[in-house]
Design a protein around this nucleic acid. Structure first.
Lengths: 244, 244
DNA sequence: GAGTGCCGTTGATGCACATCAAGGCATCCC
DNA sequence: GGGATGCCTTGATGTGCATCAACGGCACTC
């Protein structure tokens, strides 16, 4: 249930300008850097879009024309090898930011996992705002620092954790991020497919499936309807995730 | 041959304030954000240090009091699991920056790989400078963005590449970074141990060693004296690295 | 110059996870 | 209804890399 949405059938469609002042996720986003009265400036350049599931937002190598804010739904970022091997580098939820680029090109592809609403900012305009509002710059830098820390955690996971530890870490990560967005942390919403989880954790779908089954058999989690996972033994899953 | 160094026997020792205007790697660093006349401000707060090989600069979880700039030598950043498994998240060379933190704590440990010179900036002072010089903020943000892109490449490597592809990518990466620092790209200087390489690539020392041997046997590289590796077949190593 | 420790290499073996294959169970569409 | 499709699960088998073990070279010590 996307907050601003009109339920139109469009795949990717521009919507009317939205009053940022009413944005329910503003405090989570870059936009938290603005005071109430400055939000008009922002509203002038954003466009709100609703996107169906499984649509590409942009692809690796595309000219980086826009920056985006996820306001509802789920997005995945990924990189491909020429033979099709895929690494998902992150999942984004409401409040998350995407579109940072190097050399004016996107360094990864972005695709919706479920129905998603995003705010689009033309990069040119955004850069002018950056000069005008140092607080925005500061905020963006802070968000990039957090992402960097998360990336390092993910490197530890990919390089050194077992399949069991990876799945446990993944579920805990989802749970913790849900809390920060003010959503339920348990049961955890797991909107992405087994295949996406596999490509995020450096595993195969079969191993992901088997590991879920195994954690379930051990009474540590329970698999619920609608892609939800209940964490039954919180202490144990934490132990597993940390590798102790 | 560290550029500013006095060759003192100290392990970690503060040196006299150095005139940043003469810094030979300034254009590579955050400090490139400053005009000549502003450098005095910088020089007031930096301390230059020379550090022996295999010394800890700071550890994960320490209060993040300082930011650092590497001016010569090599540093590794790493994270540990409780049972000792280690993931090296990056190697730093002259011009590179370290010390960004989340919640005022370092999110990783930093250790010298070889004799290293660093500039130390107290974080408090640096933050004041950030407010005063938006260009510095901008520069720092740019560097963080680049690191994020590199982190995503590393995730692809850790999650989806084979040992052979990992080693090829690693050597090419070292080579390309040497170019950016204005150093020789071939033969490549490889100052870190097999064990460090293994922990960077998510492998074991044995596999690293075997893979080097294999690439050598294929006539793609040559192992030289003093930790240097010559890339004999550039096209082929590039193909391997990209997984095609 | 024997002793010790560290590092890199090589070989033998083992195992965690990949690969290959098949079936269950939704949903969708004619 | 029923067949097609996509996702998840489960089983059988394979393999890339880890693990275990041994050895040689080099630096350092006494």
């Amino acid at each position: 249930m996307p907050p601003f949405d009109l339920g139109r059938p469009a795949k990717i469609g521009a919507q009317d300008v939205h009053p940022c002042g009413a944005c329910p996720v503003r405090s989570l986003t870059v936009c938290a850097a603005f005071e109430e009265e400055e939000l008009n400036r922002l509203a002038e350049i954003v466009q709100l879009q609703r996107i169906d599931a499984h649509q590409t937002i942009f692809s690796e190598g595309d000219p980086a024309m826009n920056l985006f804010n996820v306001t509802a739904g789920t997005v995945k970022l990924y990189k491909l090898l020429p033979d099709g091997r895929r690494q998902i580098t992150g999942f984004l939820f409401s409040g998350d930011f995407l579109g940072l680029s190097v050399n004016d090109r996107y360094a990864y592809s972005a695709e919706t996992v479920a129905v998603t609403s995003i705010c689009r900012f033309p990069r040119r305009h955004m850069e002018l705002l950056l000069d005008e509002f140092p607080k925005l710059q500061r905020r963006l830098f802070g968000m990039a620092s957090n992402e960097l820390a998360a990336a390092q955690d993910q490197m530890l996971l990919l390089g050194r954790k077992t399949a069991r530890e990876k799945i446990a870490s993944f579920l805990l990560g989802l749970s913790q991020r849900a809390v920060r967005r003010g959503q339920r942390d348990n049961p955890v919403q797991v909107p992405m497919s087994r295949s996406d989880i596999a490509d995020f954790l450096g595993l195969t779908t079969e191993t992901v499936s088997r590991t879920f089954t195994q954690l379930k058999a051990n009474g540590i989690i329970r698999l619920l309807e609608g892609g939800k996972v209940q964490i039954v033994d919180n202490r144990k899953i934490l132990e597993i995730a940390e590798g102790s």
